[in-house]
Design a protein around this nucleic acid. Structure first.
Length: 417
DNA sequence: TCTGGGGTCCTAGGACCC
DNA sequence: TCTGGGGTCCTAGGACCC
């Protein structure tokens, strides 16, 4: 049996964990660049704030005046996520992190009342990590996810939903709309609706070949999982990821190549850091830049994907990225966004020793270790390649940032006694 | 002035080969 | 002159997720 536990309004709950004055108030956390709302407390939802609403529009709506807006603070959320994970590891034999605020638990082989166990876990996460959560239980991940959604939907409920028993969940399927199912998005729901399929029960009643024709094999898997057959097994350690990206919208439009060069160099440097932290090397790279998609600026977007010599060296990656960016650059546009994506990642340990590598691998490794050590101790941007620049007029807006309570000594909470 | 960032998987279609 | 089947690999685009 599986369980899925997830934090309610996770980013908002993280902010509240450190600032109790935010409790009971309508609060929203904004996306990068303070673009749109990506997390809302119940109070903010009740005022009518929608997921993804652009802040520049929402903040002008009269009924949303009471909402407290905060920039997203991923260092804090990542840290809170890790705490939640460590707590869960003490309670459940196996934990699989799924996203920053969601973890699957494997209850296989556990004796006793799994609902009571879930309640205990939930209470511990609430009191120790200060994060309110909901838990769904089911024999497959898809069912556990669905149960979790049901638990979340009950206001003033106990935050738990148990779909372990076939009869009970099949009864519930009759009234649950299809869009609630993990793996069925807007497009699939619309396709199914045209066939009169609206509830989860309608969907599980379809023949597998009909589902396949409509939704391909992913739809077939989702259906099988809803019926209790595991298609997505539990895995404690995810396989090494395949790609890694650093992409950002600019705080203001970029008009000149030197600014773009700085941005691309900085993104490549950051991507290289992420790569090294995971012990990986990249063997291919994608660089893209684009103008604003939403306004009436003249449009230009282009990207380039190419193989590179396998590496995690900041300078090598930066050089490749900047050269590619230069080829893509056209004068006369107002650029709104750019990105560096590292592809076909491999564990560094598997890297064959190149006889004629253009860079001395040992020297590169020593330099990168020095770079990472200094930056770990003194802050991320202490040592960085010169071309990434000091001015950074393009960097994103984060005007409503909370203090970095957990990651910076000079911003930790002070307790007076 | 203003609309996020970072992932995965699947399929169709073209190029190329035997 | 016309006609065939069957592979592989790559890429673009769609769909979905948080």
């Amino acid at each position: 049996m599986f369980a899925l536990i997830d934090g309610n309004s996770f980013y908002c709950s993280c902010e509240r964990a450190f600032d109790p004055t935010l409790r009971g108030k309508p609060l929203a956390v904004l996306s990068n660049n303070d673009g749109c709302a990506i997390a809302r407390t119940q109070e903010a939802k009740d005022l009518g704030l929608k997921m993804g609403e652009p802040w520049h529009l929402a903040s002008k709506r009269q009924e949303l005046k009471p909402v407290i807006w905060m920039s997203s603070n991923y260092a804090l959320y990542g840290d809170m996520s890790r705490r939640m994970y460590e707590l869960l590891c003490e309670e459940a034999p196996r934990v699989e992190p799924y996203s920053i605020d969601e973890m699957f638990l494997d209850y296989a082989g556990l004796p006793g009342d799994l609902l009571a166990l879930s309640a205990r876990i939930r209470e511990r996460v609430r009191t120790v990590a200060k994060i309110p959560t909901c838990v769904g239980i089911g024999p497959t991940k898809t069912i556990a996810k669905l149960a979790n959604k049901v638990a979340k939907g009950v206001r003033g409920g106990d935050g738990l939903c148990d779909f372990a028993r076939k009869e009970e969940r099949e009864e519930a399927y009759k009234t649950i709309p299809l869009g609630e199912v993990w793996g069925l998005g807007r497009a699939s729901v619309a396709k199914l609706a045209r066939r009169g399929v609206e509830s989860v029960a309608d969907f599980t009643a379809l023949r597998a070949d009909e589902v396949r024709e409509l939704l391909t094999v992913t739809g077939v898997r989702t259906q099988a999982e809803l019926k209790g057959t595991v298609c997505y097994p539990f895995s404690v350690s995810p396989l090494t990821r395949k790609s890694l990206a650093v992409t950002r919208s600019f705080g203001k439009p970029v008009l000149a190549w030197p600014d773009m060069e700085q941005a691309i160099a900085a993104y490549a440097t950051r991507a290289a850091e992420k790569l090294r932290r995971r012990g990986l090397v990249a063997t291919a790279m994608q660089v893209f830049l684009r103008t604003n998609e939403f306004n009436s600026d003249p449009k230009y977007a282009n990207q380039s994907t190419f193989e590179i010599e396998p590496t995690a060296d900041s300078f090598a990656l930066m050089g490749d990225a900047v050269r590619a960016g230069r080829r893509l650059w056209r004068d006369g546009f107002r650029y709104a966004k750019a990105g560096v994506v590292l592809l076909d990642l491999k564990p560094a340990a598997e890297l064959p020793q190149e006889l004629f590598a253009s860079r001395d691998p040992e020297r590169s490794a020593r330099l990168m270790i020095a770079l990472d050590t200094v930056n770990a101790r003194y802050g991320r941007q202490t040592l960085k390649p010169a071309v990434t620049g000091l001015g950074q007029s393009w960097s994103m807006r984060r005007q409503r940032l909370s203090p970095r309570y957990t990651t910076h000594f000079d911003e930790v909470l002070l307790a007076r006694a």
